[in-house]
């Protein structure tokens, strides 16, 4: 993995996030939420700074980051596409919709297109089961999505 250089201003902000929680190690999850909001994801460099601030091993931070699915170590696409794979959506054909997104964009789950525009992921229940199957692109929600509509949805963001 290539090292990335974090901007000094961002590093200062990150340290402020840690300080807001008194650099307490039992606040690690809250701090990671704050850090992910700041950077969009949690690269190794960010984890190193957090570990330093909280006086814990980087391995400990890494262990927590990788345990929780909400935290990501790779950046998402400009338009993150999530297909709900909750049971309600699954029985109403979400898997086929997901397959179609993967096929058209030629990516696997969790990957981002080479141009950085789209990333595809599955998520567990948005709670809009009445609209199943549900797809979200950023904060926009698409309900009762059919395979044919997949291309149209992608086109909206091209």
């Amino acid at each position: 993995m290539t090292k990335i250089k974090l901007a000094d201003s961002k590093v200062t902000e990150l340290k402020q996030v840690c300080a807001k929680f008194d650099n307490q190690k039992n606040e690690l999850i809250n701090i990671l939420h704050g850090a992910q909001e700041l950077f969009g994801y949690l690269p190794a460099e960010v984890q190193e700074i957090i570990a330093q601030q909280l006086s814990v091993d980087v391995a400990h931070v890494y262990g927590v980051v990788t345990f929780y699915s909400f935290f990501s170590m790779s950046p998402k696409g400009e338009h993150p596409i999530s297909v709900c794979m909750g049971t309600a959506c699954y029985v109403r054909g979400a898997e086929k919709v997901l397959d179609e997104f993967k096929r058209i964009l030629n990516v696997k789950i969790g990957e981002t297109t080479p141009d950085g525009k789209f990333s595809v992921s599955s998520l567990r229940c948005v709670g809009a089961c009445g609209l199943a199957p549900v797809v979200t692109v950023g904060s926009k929600v698409y309900g009762r999505v059919t395979i044919e509509e997949v291309q149209q949805i992608i086109n909206e963001y091209q």
Binding site: Q24, K25, N26, E27, L28, I29, N30, L32, H33, V64, F67, Y68, S69, F70, F71, R124
Partner: peptide, 20 residues
């Protein structure tokens, strides 16, 4: 805040998670 782990609905896991 949780961070997306189903097992944290189990009360002892939940407590671990609250402790960071």
């Amino acid at each position: 805040y949780g961070a997306g782990a189903f097992v944290c609905g189990e009360e002892t896991s939940l407590i671990q998670s609250m402790e960071g």
